[in-house]
C-alpha cells in the first residue's frame, strides 16, 4: 500500500466564531474571505475585516491548522487595485494559500509574492487536466478545486495527468451549473458570482404571502410558490419551480445538498488531496455539525482503511439535518443525476 498523504478537510468560515468552531471540531484548513466583492460569498454580515482575519489566522496557526483566503471573483478595471491589495494583505497576514480564479490576478500574485501558495478556485471552471496544467505552468498553482460536474472516472483521469493537487466538494449547497460559467443571477438581477461575488443576492429577494400561497421573487421574477404547510426555501434561481410544456417542477434542480460521504474510500483511492465543505454563509452551528461528522469519517478511513469503512447512519442523520431541503445527492458522481 502506498503511503499517500491524508485527505485534508477544508471547512468554511464566514465569521470568526465559525472559524474557531471549524478548528475546534477538526478542520485541517479553514477558508474565508474579506468583507467585500473580492470573494464569491459577498453577503452582508459575513466575512472578515483585517483585524478579525489576523485573529483568525493566529487561532488556526496556534493549533497547527491552515487558513486559505478566497479571492475568487473576476475584478474589472476600476477595482483591480482592490484585489491586488487583498493579495498583498493576505501575504502580510501569513495566509497559507490564496484561492483565485482570475488569471490576471494570479500573474500578479506569482510575480509579487512568489512564496505565496496559489489554489485555483472552482470559479476558474477548469474541468480537465489540460486546463489545470495551463494554470500550473503559468502561475505555479499547487492545488485546483474541481467544478461539481465530473464523474469519478473523469476525476481520476485528471489526477493521473497533473502534478497539481486536486480538491473536490464533499458537502453543502450544490451548484447545478458549472461554477464560473453561470450568468443566471446576472440575467435576473445584474449581479453574478463571477463579478459581484453573489448569486441570487438577498437585496433582490421578496417573500410575499398571497392567497395563492407564499411566493418568493428575485428582482420581481417569480421563483417559486409554496402551498400551505410547504417549507418555503430561499429563492436561489436554479432551485425554483417553473413551467415547461405545461408541467410545473424543479426544472433545473431541487433544493438539495451535495453529500459524497459514501464515496470517501473511492475519493481516497484515486488520490484526492482535500475535501471542501461548502457554506461560508451558514451558521457556526452548521460548521460544527458538518466538520464533526467529516472529521470522524476521515479519521475512521485513516485508521480502518477503505475496506472497513462504512457510512454510519448517525453521520447521515446529522448531515441531513443541515442539508438544503433536508435531502442530499451525489450530484455528478451519480450518472442518473445528469
Amino acid at each position: 500500500m502506498t503511503s499517500s498523504p491524508p485527505i485534508e478537510l477544508v471547512c468554511p468560515a464566514g465569521s470568526l466564531p465559525a472559524l474557531k468552531t471549524a478548528v475546534d471540531h477538526g478542520a485541517d484548513c479553514v477558508y474565508l474571505g474579506f468583507k467585500d466583492a473580492t470573494n464569491a460569498r459577498n453577503f452582508s454580515g459575513l466575512n472578515f475585516d483585517p483585524a478579525q482575519m489576523r485573529e483568525g489566522v493566529a487561532y488556526a496557526h496556534g493549533r497547527g491548522r491552515k487558513v486559505l483566503l478566497a479571492l475568487n471573483t473576476y475584478p474589472q478595471v476600476a477595482h483591480f487595485g482592490d484585489w491586488t491589495a487583498a493579495i498583498d494583505r493576505a501575504a502580510e497576514l501569513g495566509i497559507d494559500a490564496v484561492i483565485m480564479a482570475d488569471p490576471g490576478l494570479m500573474a500578479y500574485a506569482a510575480k509579487t509574492h512568489p512564496q505565496l501558495r496559489l489554489h485555483l478556485s472552482v470559479q476558474g471552471s477548469a474541468t480537465s487536466y489540460e486546463a489545470i496544467n495551463w494554470y500550473h505552468e503559468r502561475f505555479g498553482i499547487q492545488r485546483a478545486v474541481l467544478p461539481r460536474v465530473l464523474a469519478m472516472a473523469q476525476v481520476e483521469s485528471v489526477i493521473a495527468n497533473t502534478p497539481v493537487e486536486i480538491e473536490v466538494f464533499g458537502f453543502g449547497g450544490l451548484c447545478v451549473m458549472v461554477e464560473g460559467r453561470c450568468a443566471l443571477s446576472a440575467y435576473a438581477t445584474g449581479e453574478s458570482p463571477n463579478c459581484n461575488g453573489a448569486c441570487s443576492p438577498g437585496k433582490y429577494v421578496r417573500w410575499e404571502d398571497t392567497p395563492r400561497g407564499m411566493e418568493t421573487r428575485l428582482n420581481g421574477i417569480l421563483i417559486d410558490r409554496f402551498a400551505e404547510g410547504e417549507r418555503a426555501g430561499y429563492p436561489t434561481l436554479c432551485k425554483g419551480r417553473f413551467e415547461v410544456n405545461d408541467e410545473t417542477y424543479y426544472a433545473l434542480e431541487e433544493p438539495t445538498s451535495l453529500n459524497t460521504l459514501e464515496l470517501l474510500p473511492e475519493l481516497a483511492r484515486i488520490g484526492i488531496r482535500a475535501i471542501k465543505i461548502e457554506g461560508r454563509q451558514r451558521s457556526p452551528a452548521y460548521v460544527a455539525q458538518v466538520t464533526r461528522v467529516w472529521r470522524a469519517a476521515l479519521d475512521r478511513l485513516k485508521s480502518g482503511g477503505a475496506e472497513a469503512f462504512s457510512v454510519q447512519p448517525a453521520w447521515m442523520a446529522e448531515l441531513n439535518k443541515v442539508s438544503e431541503g433536508q435531502s442530499h445527492t451525489l450530484g455528478a458522481y451519480y450518472r442518473p443525476w445528469k
Binding site: R148, V149, L150, V176, M177, V178, R181, C182, A183, L184, A186, Y187, C238, A251, L252, E253, A332, W337, K338
Partner: peptide
C-alpha cells in the same frame, strides 16, 4: 443569451 452550462441535461 447563453447563460450557463451544466453536466446535467435539462
Amino acid at each position: 443569451l447563453p447563460l450557463a452550462h451544466s453536466a446535467r441535461c435539462f
